[in-house]
Computed example of a mutant assay.
Amino acid sequence: MTGTLSIKEASLYYGKHIVSEALTLEFNKPEIVSIIGPNGSGKSTLLKALGRLLKPAAGTVYLNGRDMQAMSSAETARQLSVLPQATQAPGDMTVRDLACCGRLPYQTMFSQLGESDRQAIDMALESTGLVDMQKRSLSSLSGGECQRAWLAMALAQKPQILLLDEPTTYLDIHYQLELMELVNRLHRRFAITVIMVLHDLNHAARFSHRLIAVKKGQIMADGSVQQVFVKSTLEKLYDVKVTVMEMGSEGKHYLACFPYCSMETD
């Protein structure tokens, strides 16, 4: 079953500060969507609202056609998984123990993991390449390995929709590419809708099907990579001059952006 997510006429506030107003978006098919835009534009705020981490001051977020605020946390987590920027767990927790946490939405207070839970956990560890590391403590992992462990936890929830907030932050280029390729494989294998906030424009262009450009809390552009990842839109979005080129290797082609001058220094 394909998960659907939408936000209708939403106003998003932090305290008394207005971040976005009259925001409307729909996600109705399994694809990889990247939300891009400058710092402070409201990208992470939007993702938090989509993930039920922030309640809109007005408007509604719908998950599979239902008002998300009317759903229980466990019911939401069985359909949608959120991986925020800041993740914390005890350093002595093992990779498998963390993956097991992904099954909590399926448990009652006194229930134990059943066969279906173990199968979901094994599937998550296998899909993220962590079977051989499942007994290692989180404190012994590299940054890239730790991020994969958190992805395994999210995947163990068996979500229809996966939300990622800047998943490549603090990773070097090797682990950034490894993680993005993993997200792409998970999307293709399980037909999961992936919605993520990304700062790296070239990762967004290479691995996404759809881009949403956000500036000052408003949607500046929303469409395919070919529609949004163009010189005029990117220059207006970031207030810089850019060159957009098509890159290719091994028969694969993708767009890349090269900023070269701030508008202020023009």
Rank of each mutant, 00 (worst) to 15 (best):
A221C: 05
S224D: 05
V214Y: 13
A256Q: 08
F258G: 03
L234V: 01
F258I: 06
V242H: 08
Q226I: 10
I212S: 09
P259C: 05
K216Y: 05
V228P: 09
G223M: 00
Q227M: 13
Q226L: 11
G248Q: 00
Y254P: 03
A213Q: 10
K231H: 00
V225G: 01
A256D: 09
M245K: 12
E250N: 12
L255D: 03
G223E: 06
H209T: 04
K252G: 04
S224F: 09
V214S: 14
S224R: 10
T233Y: 11
K215D: 06
P259G: 07
Y254W: 15
F258N: 02
T233S: 13
K241Q: 04
K252I: 12
V225E: 01
K241D: 01
K236T: 12
I212L: 11
D222P: 13
L234N: 06
T243M: 09
P259V: 11
Q227K: 15
L255A: 02
R210W: 15
M247I: 11
K236P: 02
M220D: 02
G251V: 00
E235A: 05
G251P: 00
G217D: 03
A213T: 08
D239F: 07
G248S: 02
V242S: 08
E246C: 08
E250Y: 10
S232F: 05
E235T: 11
K252A: 06
T243C: 10
T233G: 14
A256H: 07
Y254G: 08
T243E: 08
L211N: 12
M220L: 00
A213H: 13
V244Y: 06
E246K: 09
A213M: 09
F229S: 03
D239S: 14
C257A: 07
G248Y: 02
Y254M: 06
S232Q: 06
E246G: 04
Y260M: 01
G248D: 04
T233V: 15
Q227N: 15
T233K: 13
R210G: 14
A213P: 11
T243P: 05
K216N: 04
S249I: 12
K252M: 10
Y260Q: 05
L211A: 10
T243R: 09
E235K: 02
Q226C: 08
E250S: 11
K252R: 14
Q218Y: 15
K231E: 06
S249H: 10
Y238V: 07
A213V: 09
F258E: 04
Y260S: 05
F229N: 00
M247G: 14
K215A: 07
C257L: 03
Q226W: 04
H253N: 13
G248F: 00
A221F: 02
S224H: 07
T233M: 14
Y254C: 07
K216A: 11
I219F: 01
E235G: 02
A256Y: 08
Y254V: 05
L211E: 14
A221S: 09
K231S: 05
A256M: 10
